[in-house]
């Protein structure tokens, strides 16, 4: 019980503390990829930039637009953080495990499905046409990616025979990394992950070039920051999940002897996927809305269904 509470505190703390440095790293990485230095003014090479941002966001005026639906407007941003942290609570990092759960993978999926309401409700309640359109886009997007994502994960689950992250890692330490067996599911999941966290090339609900700021156009101060906390926590959680599912999680040389090493392995693998989201953002332009829908429904969905058969065959051969 005490262990669980400690792990819970560690995971929540990690998620909240990790977000500001990640925003800094994202801006630095993006900057250098686009051949500019990124933030340089506050502190050495802009190291104190996240702190400056935090102070700015905390002291900004909190504005609620006149025609807004007040209750939903105030509720939406907190929903974003709340769902992301709930998902984080069931994901084990090495031996640190807050809530042991048999169906942990499904629980992460459920929370990521629920988190989309933050965008929809923010869009609806802002009483602003841009926000509203963004909310509609978010709703259509979630219906698009949910199915390929579910099927990609189910392929992995068929192979491992469990929804439990501990079992999944154990299977991989015996048989080798999941990416060797399920490269298609891995790629599908990476693709859909970008849509799930609303990152380029699928950041349609934000769409700053056509929708001002999308669902968060009318938000300011800490409510605005809450959306970003939710988004980045989601990125961290899904990166941890991908490395658990396909890259062996905390398994690795000497990880059995020194569990701390396992934690570091896991965080290192997740860090690569977090970097990958920055990389994608710097590389790809945003898809048009109809392009996004046809990619999801016409390409990814059939591939992911066919991939289920591959997974079933592999499960029979290897299992």
């Amino acid at each position: 019980m005490i262990n669980n509470l400690l792990s819970m505190a560690f995971i929540v703390g990690l998620m909240l503390v990790a977000v500001p440095p990640i925003t800094y790293l994202e801006r630095k990485v993006l900057g250098h990829m686009q051949q500019r230095p990124g933030p340089m003014v506050v502190g050495f090479h802009g190291l104190l930039q996240p702190l400056a941002d935090a102070i700015k966001l905390i002291f900004k005026e909190d504005i609620i637009p006149k025609g807004a639906d007040k209750l939903l407007f105030m509720f939406a941003p907190s929903f974003s953080i709340f769902a992301a942290l709930l998902a984080a609570s069931v994901v084990p990092i090495g031996f640190i495990q807050a809530v042991p759960m048999k169906s942990a993978l499904l629980f992460v999926m459920a929370m990521s499905a629920i988190s989309i309401y933050a965008l929809i409700l923010a869009g609806y309640s802002s009483n602003d046409k841009y926000s509203f359109l963004a909310g509609m886009r978010a709703a259509a997007q979630v219906l698009g990616y949910e199915l390929p994502m579910g099927f990609a994960l189910m392929a992995a689950v068929i192979l491992y025979g469990s929804f439990d992250f501990n079992e999944i890692v154990k299977w991989q330490s015996q048989h080798g990394w999941g990416i060797l067996y399920q490269p298609i599911a891995f790629l599908l999941f990476l693709f859909v992950m970008a849509a799930e966290v609303g990152r380029p090339p699928f950041d349609l609900p934000e769409g700053e070039s056509e929708l001002v700021g999308g669902f968060h156009t009318e938000y300011s101060g800490m409510r605005f920051a809450a959306f970003f906390f939710g988004e980045y926590i989601n990125i961290i959680v899904l990166s941890l999940v991908v490395s658990l599912l396909f890259l062996g999680g905390w398994s690795g040389p000497l990880a059995d002897k020194y569990p701390v090493l396992g934690v570091l392995y896991h965080l290192g693998k997740a860090a690569f996927f977090i970097f990958l989201t920055f990389w994608l953002r710097a590389t790809f332009p945003r898809y048009r809305f109809d392009q996004m829908l046809s990619i999801m429904w016409k390409i990814l969905l059939p591939i992911s269904i066919l991939n289920l058969f591959v997974a079933a065959a592999e499960a029979l051969l290897v299992g």
Binding site: K102, L106, F107, A139
Partner: peptide, 21 residues
């Protein structure tokens, strides 16, 4: 546990989104 999660995914994640849309 399983039914609870599936309840949230199917009704919360898909059906109500469709209703709201």
């Amino acid at each position: 546990e399983f039914i609870g999660i599936v309840q949230v995914i199917v009704y919360g994640g898909a059906i109500v989104v469709l209703y709201l849309f």
